[in-house]
Simulated scan of single mutants.
Amino acid sequence: MIRRSFIPVILLLCFLSALLTGCWDTKDINKRLMPVVMGVCKEKNQNYRIILQIPSPEQKGSQYMESSSATITNAIDNIRTKAEKSIDLLHIRLFLICEETAEKDIGDIIDYAIQANDISIKGLLAIAKGNFDEVIHHQLNANPELSSYDFFSEQAGWTPETTILRLWEAYRDIKSYTQDMSIPILTKGTDTLYNFEGSAIIRVDKMVGEISREEVLIDNIFHEKYTGGTIEVADQSSVMIKQAKIRHNTVWTASGPQIKSHIKLKVEILENKNSESEEKIATKLKETVEKRAHKLITQLKKEGADTLGIGQLFRKKMSDEQIKDWKQHWYLNLDHEVTVEVTILNSIYLKSPNKIKKPGK
């Protein structure tokens, strides 16, 4: 006969043993397929064509599975029905959208990715230019999934001439009255997995234009996503930008919004084959960056796309109605001035003749 004093202990042990059954529905990793890239392209019949790139150690590369349907969800379900293992979308690192679809509408694709419970909102976005199949099926080594991600990784192959945009950022910008976005454009690489061809200008949820790699650098400075990077100041000189900061001064006048953006650059001279003075190089760099910024701002206003997020800086100065009319009216009449200040740092890499003391001098 069990003593009454032992009953609470027995009940506690039964309760704890019940908790141990919480992992009954786990699946062995060998029974799962984990795609790292999802390609999305809308066909002429308006069906979504979905391609999943899955790492395959057995094939020393990647396995590709695809299907088409009227909805993205159904297309993925079709892939699941013919897969020999369970498909886990949580590890998708890159959404690659074909250019034709981006020019029409990407809003439903972003909505699907955000609302799906098994997709990480930290996934990256890119647009494939050219032959969609060649871009997404391109492989160079045994680990193409790592190359796809490292191309955008700030700890690996990323440079300031490359745009980084995540799913949650794209969803935020599509729903915003005062901000648009830019998405990196990729083509099939030759000696690398991809070639970066600049960025697509997205107005609300459609691609309306493109900006060059040089202009992407300015875009990253405005978004304070700048680290490192070189600029050719002239044919015979180049500098490394060590630090880039930007400050804005906004005013709302009777004629509309005005903004003055001041960029501070701290640079090191890498090459100076013509032995130009630091003052002259600083002046040339200032003129180069200001020219690029003016060109970018002019193009964005022409397309009516506020990818720099200038409207965000004016939100506190606008009424609800003015916020809603920002892109259609106020942004187009924006007076935007950009000035650049350059500071030349002591360059430990400088090897130009005017910095090397000759023997006996």
Results as ranks from 00 to 15, higher is better:
114 I>S: 10
194 Y>L: 01
111 D>M: 05
115 Q>G: 05
318 M>Y: 13
42 K>C: 07
204 V>K: 15
216 V>M: 01
3 R>C: 04
324 K>V: 12
38 M>S: 06
211 I>F: 07
27 K>S: 12
355 K>H: 14
242 K>F: 03
293 A>M: 06
192 T>Y: 06
50 I>F: 07
68 S>M: 02
82 K>Q: 12
230 T>D: 10
173 D>F: 02
337 E>N: 13
206 K>A: 13
22 G>V: 10
41 C>S: 13
4 R>W: 11
189 G>P: 01
206 K>L: 14
128 A>H: 01
14 C>H: 01
40 V>E: 04
248 H>T: 11
353 P>M: 13
134 E>Q: 15
340 V>I: 03
226 Y>H: 14
218 I>R: 02
66 E>F: 07
219 D>C: 05
249 N>V: 12
316 K>D: 15
228 G>S: 13
280 K>R: 14
130 G>A: 06
15 F>H: 13
243 Q>P: 01
130 G>C: 04
352 S>Q: 12
290 E>I: 03
304 G>L: 11
306 D>C: 06
40 V>I: 13
117 N>C: 01
2 I>G: 03
59 Q>M: 08
357 K>F: 00
92 I>N: 06
157 G>E: 08
349 Y>K: 13
342 V>F: 11
252 W>Q: 11
21 T>P: 03
355 K>T: 15
84 E>K: 14
303 E>A: 11
222 F>H: 10
106 I>T: 12
331 Y>K: 09
135 V>D: 07
308 L>D: 05
45 N>G: 02
1 M>N: 12
316 K>G: 15
303 E>L: 08
110 I>D: 05
185 I>A: 02
340 V>S: 04
253 T>C: 02
88 D>T: 15
85 K>C: 13
100 E>W: 05
126 A>T: 09
188 K>C: 03
169 E>D: 15
314 F>C: 04
81 T>W: 07
165 L>C: 07
145 E>W: 09
206 K>E: 14
55 P>C: 07
44 K>P: 01
58 E>V: 05
307 T>Q: 08
328 Q>A: 15
320 D>W: 00
4 R>D: 07
76 I>C: 05
108 D>K: 15
256 G>W: 06
246 I>Y: 10
304 G>N: 13
214 E>K: 06
55 P>I: 09
